[in-house]
Design a protein around this nucleic acid. Structure first.
Lengths: 242, 242
DNA sequence: CGCGAGCTTGATGCCGATCAATGCATGTGG
DNA sequence: CCACATGCATTGATCGGCATCAAGCTCGCG
């Protein structure tokens, strides 16, 4: 069932997507890429604040983020949101739902975004035929695990300022890896959402920002952050973890 | 290179393993099962305290735990161990290493254990031929992500007693799922290791045990734990998360 | 029997949660 | 164009939970 409101559903697809080197298609041959493109739906907009999917819904597709950014949170519970991550362009959403065939988090757009739906069954079928695609899928899944381990390290062993420093460095690294401007870092999430991800209350996040600023490591202006001393941040973040 | 000290290297393999319903082979056809068994090495013993693999080593095999139990920890750092999990019989180790082709944790045996090595390249090749095996692999990877999310929830949003309660309930559930005696719960890890997993210091773990015992939820005798009021524990653990 | 690793318990201090107020931006209606 | 409302961020004061430091205690083992 094609989206009724998009003008031209027959878009060029993955082959021309500027994200193809970072997304699932990374390293795929032209042939496989074309086949993948044939099952990927045309990019679909997700307005800010809207859920791409919710906990418990049956998993039909994985979603590649084409633009914008999201938060993924645990907990049907009203108040006890726990943000597990902030996926952005190039990330794959829904991997956690494969095991149970149902999504295990809510995915909420933090900004107007675009996603490409990839029907999971067709993807699995294609991966069955293509070693390279299979390998890519494994990589994506495995990397998600490693990423989660990083969060566990933050939550388990670091104090407030260290967590924030580690998060900012990680965010910068991710933006750089995507060849995006990381110089004036612009946060897409509120202090509360950030706090939920870091295991802190929003007041503590705010205080940590202020402290890092006072120490000359950051320049903070609302959600616009400039890193003044990356090495200092790394010393903070690494001091506890390394 | 076959293990030099095992008497009969030509063992029956997965088809007769009593864990096959819980392990990777779950749900595989006889044919696929046989092919899988043909690439899985004979069970290899890992003495208590020894590393099955260490952070940074190239990933050659995944390991299915056949008996015993392990801890997986982050951090090359000497003191700053962070335990990400306690895999036991039926679990698959090494999944986190697929993405980078190198292990991202240390896997240490907490008790004398046995593991079946599964060469990853051969496994991937086999998964390429068998849809069902591919599906199983995806499931294992995805479940690992979901499991990590559970840990993140503990670390991010719960206090000491709640974390411990959640951990004990989860452990019980896992043992039950494997049809193992979960009645007198026997912990394989020290208080310090448990603390490292829960993001607490060992003294706090000890105090939490005492508190839960005083409240009539547990009977604690060293590492032998008896759950007296599972529902009470669930209220504690769920009260913060749900 | 005595040693030592691991566990328990106590006393104290610090970090982050909580409660509460103020500040600052954006947006809306008069 | 300004006045006000609203959502988000900052800052302060106080409190509680966990870390830390420091003894004892238990059990297994040589």
């Amino acid at each position: 069932m094609p989206a009724p409101d998009t003008p031209a559903p027959a878009l060029p697809g993955c082959s021309d997507c500027e994200l193809r080197a970072l997304c699932l298609p990374a390293g795929l041959s032209r042939h496989t890429l074309a086949r993948l493109a044939s099952i990927v739906a045309a990019p679909r907009p997700v307005p800010r604040g809207q859920a791409l999917f919710r906990t418990g819904q049956p998993l039909r597709s994985l979603y590649a983020v084409r633009s914008g950014s999201f938060k993924t949170c645990l907990g049907h519970a009203p108040a006890h949101h726990q943000v597990t991550g902030f996926p952005m362009a190039g990330d794959l959403l829904g991997l956690d739902g494969i095991g149970s065939a149902h999504h295990s988090v809510d995915a909420i757009a933090l900004a107007p975004s675009q996603v490409c739906a990839i029907p999971y069954l067709q993807l699995a079928e294609l991966a069955h035929e293509s070693r390279e695609l299979q390998r890519q899928l494994h990589r994506s899944l495995s990397r998600e695990i490693v990423r989660d381990h990083g969060v566990m390290r933050m939550l388990g062993g670091m104090r407030a300022d260290e967590r924030l420093a580690a998060f900012l460095l990680d965010l910068t690294r991710q933006l750089q890896a995507r060849g995006r401007p990381a110089a004036p870092l612009v946060l897409r999430m509120t202090r509360a959402e950030l706090g939920s991800h870091l295991g802190l209350k929003l007041e503590t996040v705010s205080r940590s920002f202020s402290r890092l600023q006072d120490d000359g490591l950051l320049a903070v202006r609302q959600r616009r952050i400039r890193i003044l001393d990356a090495e200092g941040l790394a010393r903070l973040a690494g001091g506890a973890a390394a």
